[in-house]
Nucleic acid binder design. Structure first.
Lengths: 341, 341
DNA sequence: TTGTATGCGTTATCAG
DNA sequence: CTGATAACGCATACAA
C-alpha cells in the first residue's frame, strides 16, 4: 500500500506538499496540486489513518456501545446516531456490550484505546460508580444513553422509565382493571427495574396492594413473552390485564394468550413498551408506551459532537414517555376474569 | 493520557520492558513485571492503538459495511458476525452504506484507511466490476455477503435468490393459484431482481404468461407493503395470491389487505421472504422463504478470519433457500377472486 | 533478563 | 509556495 513518501517521489515534491494537498491546504500551487493528485490516483494512495491519528491525536470517530446489535431498539438508535455523526463528517464505530459486565468493559476499553473523539454508551450492567470514575479518569467525553447517572446528568440522554411504567399501569387502571399482572424485563437492568417501580407506584396510587404472584421476570425477548404468559397462567391467579416490559415480549405474550384461546383485548388487555415499528402492525395493534428511540440516537450523536468538538447546540437530555393507545387494551368487561383463582 | 514512556519512568525500566509486559512476552522477570503492572495501573495506562497498529501494521479489526443499521435482517447478521470475530479476539467495526453508491464507496474507503485485517461487505449498489477492481487493488481481503460476484466466488457468502423466488411462487402454484401477484423489492438491488426472475421462471414452468399488471415494485419496508397492496387493488386485476419481496413488506401487505376487509389466507394467500424473527408471530403466521441470515453472519466472519489471518477452515459459501410453510397460504378457494377484473 | 535505537506514515513547525 | 525535520507512541532487532 502506497505511502505518502512514494507519492512525493512520484510527483517530485516533498512529503509536506503531498500532505498539504491531501488536507486541502490552500498554500499550494495549482500545477503542483494536479501533479500530486495524479500521483495519488496512479498509486491508489490511501492515507494511513493510524499515522494520521497518531500525529494529530484525533480520530474523527465516535465510539458507540450498544447492548445488542440486533433488535429494533438498538437498530433504530444506531441508525439515527450514525446519521448525525456522519453528517458531521465523522464515522461511528459500533461495538456490542452483550449485556455482560466483562464485555461492556472490554467494549469501552477498546473504544478508548482507539482514541475516539467521544463515546456513546448504552451500558446495562456497569454500575454508576464505575461509569463516573471512567468519566473522570478519561479525557474522552462520555455520553450515556437510556440511563441517568446522577453525577453525570449533563452527559445523559434518557427517558423517565419509572414514569413510563406508571403511565402504562394507570392507563389500565383507568380502563377499570384492578387485577393487573406485570411481565418485567431482566431485573439486573436499570430500565426494567424502573418500569416495575412505576407499576408499583400506580397500583399504590389507587390503594391497590402489590401482589408478587402477579409479576414475572422476563428477558425482553419474544419467546420470553410467551414463557411469561405460561408462567402467569400456571399460577392460577386471576388477572384481566398485563403490562409488559417491552414490545418484543408483548408480541410473544399476545401469541401465548391466543394459543390458549384467550382473546385480546376481550379477555385480557395488554400494554407494551418501546413502540417499535412493528407495534402498529400487530393483531391487535399494540397499545404501548412510546420511547423516543430515534431521538435518543440523534441527541446522543449531537451530544457527542458537542462534547467532543465543542460544537455548541441545545441538547434535549430528558424525555418523557407517552402512551400510544391502540387496540390491545379495552375497558374491563363485567364478566369474571378468564382465569378465576 | 499516559504513554509507555511515562510508565517506564514510573517503573524504572525501559520502554522495551513495558512493551514486553503489555504484550505478554515471556522474557521478563516476575518482579519487574509486577513493578510495571503497578505503574500501569497507577497511571491508568491504555496503549495507544494507533501507535501500535502503525508499528505492527495490523489492526486486530474486521470492517463491516451493511445496507442499514436497523432492520431485522442486518441486525441479525451483524450480531452473528460479531460473535465469531470477537471470539477470535478481534473487534468488528460496523459502518452503514445506506444503500447509496457514494456512501458505500465512502464506507469502504473508511474501513480501508483504518487498515482492517479484512472487510465484510454488503453492497447494494456498487457494480461487480468495481468490486473486483477494489479486491485486486487492495491487499485487504474482501468478503461479499448476500451477493455473488462471479469473479470472486470464493469470497462470497450468498443465497440463491432466484431459487428463492421460484420456490415461493411454485408453492402458490401447487396450492392451485394461477393469478399470482408479485411485490418486488427495489429493482436496483440485485437480490430483488433475482427474486423476481425466480417468480417469472416459476410462472413459465407451468406455461403461465408474465403479466406486468400483476407486479409492483416496493421498497423492502413495511409501509411500502401497504402502498403496494393499494396499488395492486387499484388496478382492478384479479389475483388470489401474492409473493412479496421480503417479510417487512409482507407485514405491511397483510395489514393493507386486512384494512380492506380481505382475509388472509381466505381471500388471498401471501408468502414472504427472509423469515425474520417476527414472521412466526404474525396473524396469520407468515409462510415465507427462509434466508439463513445468522449463517450469513457467522460464515462471513469466519471467512474474514480465514482470509485475514490464514486460519484454515471450511467455509460454506452458497446457501439454498427453504420454504417455511405457516398460515398465510392456503389452497385456492373455488369461489371467484376477491377483485374480479 | 533488560536497554538502545530505529522505523512505522503523517502532521506541523520553521526556514527558505 | 515548498522543503527539511522533529514529533506522535509503540514494537522490535540488536546489544549488552
Amino acid at each position: 500500500m502506497a505511502t505518502i513518501r512514494e507519492v512525493s517521489k512520484h510527483a517530485q515534491v516533498s512529503v509536506a506538499t503531498v500532505s498539504r494537498v491531501v488536507n486541502g491546504n490552500k498554500w499550494v500551487a495549482e500545477a503542483t496540486r494536479q501533479r500530486v493528485l495524479e500521483a495519488m490516483a496512479e498509486l491508489g494512495y490511501q492515507p494511513n489513518s493510524f499515522a494520521r491519528s497518531l500525529a494529530t491525536n484525533k480520530s474523527e470517530t465516535i465510539g458507540m456501545v450498544v447492548g445488542d446489535l440486533s433488535g429494533p431498539f438498538f437498530g433504530e438508535m444506531m441508525q439515527y446516531a450514525e446519521q448525525v455523526v456522519r453528517d458531521a463528517g465523522k464515522h461511528l464505530i459500533i461495538t456490542s456490550g452483550h449485556s455482560t459486565l466483562d464485555e461492556e468493559r472490554d467494549a469501552v476499553q477498546f473504544l478508548l484505546k482507539r482514541r475516539c473523539d467521544a463515546l456513546i454508551l448504552h451500558l446495562d450492567l456497569m454500575p454508576d460508580a464505575e461509569i463516573v470514575e471512567l468519566s473522570q479518569r478519561q479525557s474522552t467525553p462520555i455520553i450515556l444513553v437510556n440511563r441517568l447517572v446522577p453525577d453525570l446528568a449533563e452527559q445523559c440522554v434518557y427517558l423517565d422509565n419509572e414514569a413510563g411504567g406508571f403511565l402504562a399501569t394507570r392507563h389500565l387502571l383507568e380502563r377499570g382493571h384492578r387485577r393487573i399482572a406485570c411481565v418485567t424485563g431482566p431485573l439486573y437492568k436499570a430500565d426494567a427495574r424502573a418500569r416495575l417501580a412505576g407499576y408499583r407506584r400506580a397500583l399504590d396510587s389507587v390503594g391497590l396492594d402489590y401482589d408478587e404472584q402477579l409479576v414475572v421476570e422476563g428477558d425482553f425477548l419474544e419467546p420470553g413473552g410467551e414463557v411469561a404468559v405460561a408462567a402467569l397462567l400456571a399460577r392460577q391467579v386471576a388477572f384481566s390485564a398485563v403490562v409488559v416490559g417491552n414490545d418484543l415480549m408483548a408480541i410473544g405474550a399476545i401469541n401465548g394468550f391466543k394459543q390458549r384461546g384467550l382473546n385480546i383485548p376481550g379477555d385480557v388487555s395488554l400494554v407494551g413498551y418501546d413502540d417499535v415499528l412493528m407495534a402498529g402492525y400487530l393483531e391487535p395493534p399494540l397499545t404501548t408506551v412510546r420511547v423516543p428511540v430515534a431521538e435518543f440516537g440523534s441527541e446522543a450523536g449531537r451530544l457527542a459532537l458537542k462534547l467532543g468538538e465543542g460544537i455548541d447546540c441545545e441538547i434535549h437530555n430528558r424525555f418523557l414517555p407517552t402512551l400510544i393507545e391502540r387496540g390491545s387494551t379495552a375497558d374491563l368487561a363485567p364478566q369474571p376474569s378468564p382465569t378465576a383463582a
